[in-house]
């Protein structure tokens, strides 16, 4: 199964404070361990929300707001995509991670949907419709 592992933002990460060389070293070693275990598929760190944008959907309206965004603890400061055999395995890996932030912080584990989760929803008609839409999006079709 694939999981997304979300590193939640803190006051420091939101104000753009970079990690110390020690922390950077510890995180690099942890990432190395993930690669050697065949677990890591992808991972990136995100700039503070002050560099971001948010698009709000209300009916037909789309409203764009510039960052920063207020609810720091709900924001994401970085992510990994891991291939693991169970959520429990993901938890064990997260416990081995050095605290990625300079202050107390949270890491959240979220399993990804797979095609099997949609099997009941996807009627053949719906599937054909989806394929037709994709075909029309193809420039050379």
């Amino acid at each position: 199964m694939k999981v997304m592992v979300l590193v939640k933002a803190t006051k420091e990460s939101e104000s753009g404070v970079l990690p110390t060389p020690e922390l950077l070293g510890a995180m690099t070693r942890f990432n190395e361990e993930l690669i050697r275990a065949g677990v890591m598929l992808a991972g990136e760190g995100l700039k503070p929300s002050s560099a971001g944008r948010r698009v709000h959907f209300a009916g037909e309206r789309r409203t764009v707001t510039d960052g920063p965004f207020a609810e720091t603890k709900e924001l994401v400061a970085g992510f990994w995509l891991w291939q693991v055999r169970s959520v429990e395995e993901a938890v064990e890996w997260v416990k081995r991670c050095p605290n990625p932030m300079l202050s107390d912080s949270d890491i959240e584990i979220r399993p990804l949907y797979g095609p099997e989760d949609f099997a009941e929803l996807m009627t053949p008609e719906l599937q054909a419709l989806g394929e037709d839409q994709r075909r029309r999006l193809e420039p050379n079709a």
Binding site: A37, R85, S86, E88, E89, V91, E92, W93
Partner: peptide, 11 residues
């Protein structure tokens, strides 16, 4: 039991 299974698979 689930934690043990996970750690076992990893280690």
């Amino acid at each position: 039991r689930k934690r043990i299974a996970a750690v076992w698979h990893m280690e």
